[in-house]
C-alpha cells in the first residue's frame, strides 16, 4: 500500500511528461511538411535576396561576389553623370511615389465603391445574401490576367467603350485611356475591388440594426447614423479591406505592365527591369526589399489600428 502511494505521483508525472513529449513529436511531424516547403520556397530565399543586395553587379547581369553598399545607396541617391554631384535618385523615388500614390488612390476608389456594396449585401434578406456574395467572389477568383485583359478590351481606342461613345455620337475621336495612369488605376481598382468588399461585409454581417433604430429614435439624420453608429462598428473591416487592397497594389506587376504601356512603371515592373535590361541584380534585390519594408510598415499600421486580437482572429 505504502509502496503504491509513494510511487504513484512519480509515475503520473512521468506519464504526463511522456504524453507531452509525444504531443510535441506529433506536432513536429504534422508541421514538418508545410514548414519545410514554405521555408524552402518562400521564406528562405528572401535571405538570399538580402545577401544579393550587398553584392556588386556583374557587367552583363548576375553578381560578382564582392561586398558593396552601392545598391542600397542607389535606391535613394545617385551620382549625376553630368554634374558629378550626388543627388536624390529621382527616377527611383518617382517610381516609388507613383506606386504609393496609385495604390492609395486605388484603395480610396475601392472603399468608395466597396463600402456601399458591402452595406447593400449586408442589408439584404438573409436568404439572398449568399447569392450576392457569390457574385462578388466569382470575379475575385477569376484569373487576374484575364480581368486585366478584359479591362484593356473595354478601354482601348478601338475598344467597346470608345466604339459605343463614337457610335452614339457623343465624341468624334476616341478618348485615349490605354497606357495612361488612369488605365492602371481603373485596372487595379477593378481587379482588387472584391478584396475590399469581402472583409467589410464580414464585419457588417452580424451588425445589429437595432442600434441604428435607437439612433433614429434620438433624431439622428441618416448621415449621422452612418458616421456615428455604423462606421465605428465596422471599422475593423474597413481597415482590413484597405490593407488587402493597398498591399497587392504596391507590388502590382501584371496590371501596370499590360495597361501602363511601359511609361507608367510601378515598383514591381522596375524591379523586374533590374534583372533584365537594367543588368543590376543587387539594385533589383535592394528595391525588392525596400518594397517589402513598405508593405511591412503598412501591415504594422494595420495591426496597430485593429488590435492584436483582431489580427489573430483573422489569421
Amino acid at each position: 500500500m505504502t509502496d503504491i502511494a509513494s510511487t504513484r505521483p512519480t509515475s503520473m508525472r512521468d506519464l504526463a511528461a511522456a504524453r507531452k513529449r509525444e504531443e510535441r513529436r506529433t506536432r513536429a511531424f504534422l508541421l514538418a511538411p508545410a514548414m519545410a516547403i514554405l521555408i524552402f520556397a518562400a521564406s528562405g530565399p528572401l535571405l538570399i535576396v538580402l545577401v544579393y543586395s550587398f553584392l556588386t553587379p556583374g557587367d552583363y547581369g548576375g553578381v560578382v561576389w564582392e561586398f558593396s553598399l552601392k545598391a542600397w545607396f542607389n535606391v535613394f541617391a545617385e551620382r549625376d553623370f553630368f554634374t558629378e554631384e550626388i543627388e536624390l535618385a529621382d527616377a527611383h523615388l518617382s517610381i516609388m511615389w507613383r506606386s504609393i500614390k496609385l495604390s492609395l488612390m486605388t484603395t480610396v476608389i475601392c472603399l468608395i465603391i466597396g463600402f456601399p456594396t458591402a452595406y447593400f449585401i449586408a442589408t439584404r434578406p438573409r436568404g439572398t445574401r449568399d447569392f450576392w456574395m457569390l457574385l462578388v467572389i466569382i470575379p475575385f477568383w477569376t484569373n487576374l490576367l484575364i480581368r486585366t485583359f478584359a479591362i484593356m478590351e473595354l478601354i482601348r481606342n478601338e475598344g467597346t467603350f470608345n466604339s459605343f461613345l463614337v457610335g452614339i455620337g457623343v465624341i468624334d475621336t476616341p478618348i485615349q485611356m490605354m497606357f495612361t495612369e488612369f488605365a492602371v488605376l481603373v485596372g487595379m481598382a477593378y481587379v482588387y475591388l472584391p478584396l475590399m468588399i469581402l472583409p467589410i461585409y464580414a464585419s457588417m454581417e452580424r451588425f445589429d440594426f437595432s442600434l441604428v433604430e435607437a439612433g433614429y429614435d434620438l433624431y439622428a439624420t441618416r448621415f449621422q447614423v452612418l458616421r456615428r453608429i455604423i462606421l465605428p462598428l465596422v471599422k475593423p473591416g474597413v481597415v482590413a479591406g484597405s490593407i488587402l487592397v493597398f498591399v497587392p497594389c504596391l507590388g502590382a506587376y501584371v496590371t501596370p505592365r499590360v495597361l501602363g504601356g511601359g511609361k507608367n512603371m510601378m515598383l514591381g515592373n522596375f524591379i523586374e527591369l533590374q534583372f533584365g535590361q537594367g543588368r543590376n541584380w543587387p539594385l533589383g534585390a535592394a528595391l525588392a526589399l525596400t518594397l517589402l519594408v513598405i508593405v511591412m510598415v503598412a501591415l504594422i499600421f494595420y495591426v496597430r489600428a485593429v488590435g492584436r486580437e483582431e489580427v489573430r482572429g483573422h489569421g
Binding site: P45, V49, W281
Partner: peptide, 26 residues
C-alpha cells in the same frame, strides 16, 4: 508558424518571385 504559413499572403509576389529566381538558378 502562423507568420510562416501566411507569408505568401503578406509578401508581395514580385519579391518572392525575385527570390526564387535567384535561389532556383543556383
Amino acid at each position: 508558424v502562423f507568420a510562416i504559413v501566411n507569408q505568401p499572403l503578406m509578401v508581395p509576389e514580385i519579391v518572392t518571385a525575385v527570390a526564387l529566381l535567384i535561389f532556383f538558378a543556383m
